[in-house]
């Protein structure tokens, strides 16, 4: 590992000032330290941002403002989050292990890098790590990579469970940069790979994440994740969903998918079809299939298409089981 200097920032301004090109902010280090050990990241300086005053969860405009330094385990244990945003608590709890969730911060979770095995192996080409070197995953090991929104340049997926829940919650990320503080909607925060997979997000170098703003929800919500073993594994496919049903009809509905694309995938097409539709398994299935029409599975990950379809149906059905005689 390349030697580095370590600084502990006491304020956001100080963190920004300490960040020069060759710097990484340090959260819990559960992703960054690993990548440094693998030689994927080689910063000359770490600026520790875990002691900044962003370690609270506060009421904010009817919703919540979650500080970037809040640990994943504290987020998932928070009573308000559990009661008002079960999808968020469940998503965080579905990720990593009890140990890692104690160490990991909200900011670091948002900005964790893909688990594509070529990205993590510095002896292999990878457009994300080494722009222009190629993407061996397309023809190689990709059974857990993207089926939606990928390009020949990169077929990686975003690994965060939490981010999928935040996508369904219409959350926005609070960012401090050279020109002050701004809010970035999650939709605009994460990128699709396009022809520049080296950037996961639209952040500028040195931008500091200070928190996440979650608006009020007012719908039932939940998170479901399918993985290769029962626990402590990244998602093959996951679904975050929120649903509002009255008189057997869908009033409102939001669906986001994890494990299928370079960013959390909001299933806008399915959502549109479902609004006003009967709250039945038939409607859920029709909407899920319509969403999956855009899928372009690779050689070895076609299984994700029916998996995602079924998981959408299952999750929505759990939120609002169709009663016999309802609309169908």
């Amino acid at each position: 590992m390349r030697p580095f200097t370590y600084e502990r920032a006491r304020s956001a301004d100080e963190a920004l000032a300490l960040h020069d090109g060759d710097t990484h902010y340090l959260g819990g280090g559960t992703n960054l330290v690993d990548l440094m050990r693998l030689g994927v990241e080689r910063p000359a300086r770490l600026v520790d941002v875990t002691r900044l005053p962003y370690d609270r969860i506060e009421e904010h405009g009817g919703g919540l403002l979650i500080g970037a330094a809040v640990r994943n385990s504290d987020l998932a244990a928070d009573r308000t989050v559990r009661e008002r945003y079960p999808v968020l608590a469940e998503a965080v709890l579905a990720g990593a292990s009890g140990q890692i969730r104690n160490q990991a911060t909200v900011g670091g979770n948002l900005l964790q890098r893909t688990r594509c095995s070529y990205f993590q192996n510095v002896t292999k080409p990878c457009n994300k790590r080494d722009p222009g070197s190629g993407c061996p995953a397309r023809e190689g090991e990709h059974h857990n990579l993207a089926i939606l929104g990928h390009t020949p340049h990169c077929v990686a997926t975003h690994p965060s469970d939490m981010a999928v829940a935040l996508a369904v919650l219409d959350a926005s990320v609070r960012v401090r940069g050279g020109s002050g503080e701004r809010g970035v909607r999650l939709d605009e925060f994460y990128r699709l790979p396009g022809d520049d997979p080296s950037r996961d997000t639209t952040l500028d170098p040195g931008d500091l994440v200070t928190g996440i703003q979650v608006p009020p929800l007012g719908m039932a919500s939940r998170y479901r994740k399918v993985r290769e073993r029962a626990s402590f594994a990244f998602a093959l496919v996951s679904v975050a969903a929120a649903l509002d049903v009255a008189d057997g009809k869908v009033l409102d509905c939001r669906v986001a998918l994890g494990g299928v694309a370079h960013r959390p995938w909001r299933a806008r097409r399915a959502e549109e079809m479902l609004r006003g539709a009967p709250a039945t398994e038939e409607s859920y299935l029709r909407a899920a299939r319509a969403e999956m029409e855009a899928a372009q599975p690779l050689r070895d990950n076609g299984f994700k298409v029916p998996l995602a379809t079924n998981l959408i149906v299952r999750t929505l059905s759990e939120l609002a089981p169709s009663k016999p005689g309802d609309g169908s």
Binding site: D55, A69, V70, D74, A77, D78, T105
Partner: peptide
């Protein structure tokens, strides 16, 4: 556990 958790209680 019900209170809003600051980190590292």
């Amino acid at each position: 556990a019900a209170g809003h958790g600051g980190a590292g209680q």
